[in-house]
Computed example of a mutant assay.
Amino acid sequence: MTSGSDKYFVCGANSVSSVIEELKTTCTLSDSQLLNILSTDKYDQELFSAADEVRRSVYGDRVFIRGLIEITNYCRNDCYYCGIRRSNEQAERYRLSADEIFSCCQEGYALGFRTFVLQGGEDAQCTDEFICGVTARLHDAFPDCAITLSLGERPESSYRAMYSSGARRYLLRHETADFAHYAKLHPSSMSLENRMKCLSALKKIGFQTGDGFMTGAPFQTAHHIVKDIRFMQALSPDMIGIGPFIHHRTTPFAHCPDGTLSLTLRLIAILRLIFPKALIPSTTALATLCPEGRILGLKAGANVVMPNLSPRTVRKKYELYENKAHGGMESAQELDALKKAVKEAGYKIVVDKGDRAGF
């Protein structure tokens, strides 16, 4: 495996500057143009500037906050890159009760959050009855808030029940749109076909649907990334979450190089230009790679941040990757510090559900 930008290098690049201008006006590029723009960091600042101009034309300087609550780190799956994979016997497992989740939302509401994101592994005890009960309770108590779920692959009937209980957003990253590459990252019990089927069902039901992929994942090439972008163009997601692969010591990929900050920022900018109305978070993984990663993500075109509202006692236990950031501005309780940093970067955090523009 190679690391850094070398593995994305494509010879014979045309003027990247003209490609950026075309992308800004047409929201589309050929495969060869995308490969060329992925190949170099020479024009990143121009790319970030164009992305920021587009996001300001749609959302102004607003940054939407989501209160992230990691409700369980039990998972039936054994994804080769994930720290909470089923076979990790070193993981200290936990589940939040309905009352604990509600308490997190009460605190978050007082802090100014108007979207709550309930995220967790694919836990058999997170039944439809439990999730729908929690969702309905939150919907009744906080009618001016949006409830987002990120609980993995489930039957369409499960998604419909969640929608009926008051959830209106669902996050499910496809991770890679190449079937052979997917098989290298997951056990045979999982399939890209089913992941795509779930995303299609979520869109059909009416969820604001979030998709995304890892950057710098093991075995990833620039051609895989182009496939990812093409898949998302066909899906037309409302939210796009991308983040760098970061290894975890207990996984088969423990010794693989991490994804880079530069490539992730470049892709945030590209995706902003292709999907002007999308909600794009600047993720915790960026802050894990670099203390200023969260702000750099906003400057590259992101417009969402998701501070952690989980109880402090469990934050370290939801370790998807090594050294996951969970303190400082990653903590919902440090929202004032985050607001200050965002303001200094030229944006402002707003108290708003933050729906996708035009949804």
Results as ranks from 00 to 15, higher is better:
Ala217Trp: 05
Leu171Thr: 15
Asp352Asn: 15
Ser57Gln: 13
Glu92Ser: 12
Ile229Lys: 01
Glu193Phe: 02
Pro281Tyr: 07
Val19Leu: 05
Ala341Lys: 15
Pro155Gly: 00
Arg230Leu: 00
Val342Pro: 07
Ile295Phe: 06
Leu118Glu: 07
Phe207Met: 08
Leu273Asn: 11
Val342Phe: 03
Met190Ala: 00
Met162Asp: 02
Gly166Tyr: 12
Leu265Val: 12
Val16Cys: 02
Thr288Val: 11
Arg85Trp: 00
Ala269Cys: 10
Gly297Gln: 05
Lys184Tyr: 01
Arg169Met: 14
Ser103Tyr: 06
Met196Trp: 00
Ala183Gly: 10
Gln233Thr: 13
Gln125Gly: 03
Leu171Lys: 14
Ser236Asp: 12
Val19Ala: 02
Thr40Arg: 09
Ser49Cys: 09
Lys340Tyr: 08
Glu153Trp: 01
Leu267Thr: 13
Met306Asp: 11
Ile71Asn: 07
Glu129Pro: 12
Tyr109Asp: 12
Gly241Gln: 04
Ser32Val: 01
Asn323Ile: 10
Phe207Arg: 13
Lys299His: 08
Lys204Tyr: 03
Asp211Met: 07
Ala98Asp: 06
Gly212Phe: 07
Glu156Gly: 01
Thr148Met: 05
Thr284Tyr: 07
Phe219Met: 03
Leu273Glu: 05
Ser57Thr: 13
Ile349Asp: 02
Ala146Val: 12
Arg356Val: 15
Ser15Gln: 04
Ala337His: 14
Gly152His: 03
His247Ser: 14
Phe102Asn: 10
Leu29Ala: 04
Arg356Ile: 15
Leu335His: 11
Pro307Trp: 08
Ser150Trp: 04
Lys324Pro: 13
Glu22Gly: 14
Phe253Val: 06
Leu68Ile: 13
Thr313Cys: 04
Asp123Cys: 02
Pro291Lys: 13
Phe130Tyr: 10
Leu202Gly: 08
Gly243Phe: 04
Gly206Cys: 10
Ala325Arg: 14
Val314Trp: 02
Phe219Tyr: 15
Phe245Met: 08
Ala124Trp: 01
Gly259Pro: 11
Glu175Asp: 04
Tyr159Gln: 02
Gly327Met: 03
Leu273Arg: 11
Asn73Ser: 01
Ala91Asn: 02
Ile205Asp: 00
Glu322Thr: 15
Met190Val: 00
His174Leu: 03
Leu151Arg: 10
Glu175Lys: 06
Ser18Ile: 11
Lys343Ala: 09
Met306Val: 14
Asn36Ser: 08
Phe207Pro: 14
Tyr347His: 06
Gly328Lys: 08
Ala337Ser: 15
Ser30Phe: 02
Lys339Gly: 08
Glu21Phe: 08
Tyr318Lys: 09
Leu286Ser: 13
Ala167Arg: 13
Gly346Ser: 01
Ser30Ile: 01
Ser57Asn: 13
His248Gln: 05
Arg93Gly: 03
Ile20Thr: 14
Leu111Thr: 15
Asp31Asn: 04
Gly166Ser: 11
Met1Glu: 07
Gln45Arg: 11
Gln119Cys: 09
Glu122Lys: 03
Ala300His: 06
Lys316Glu: 10
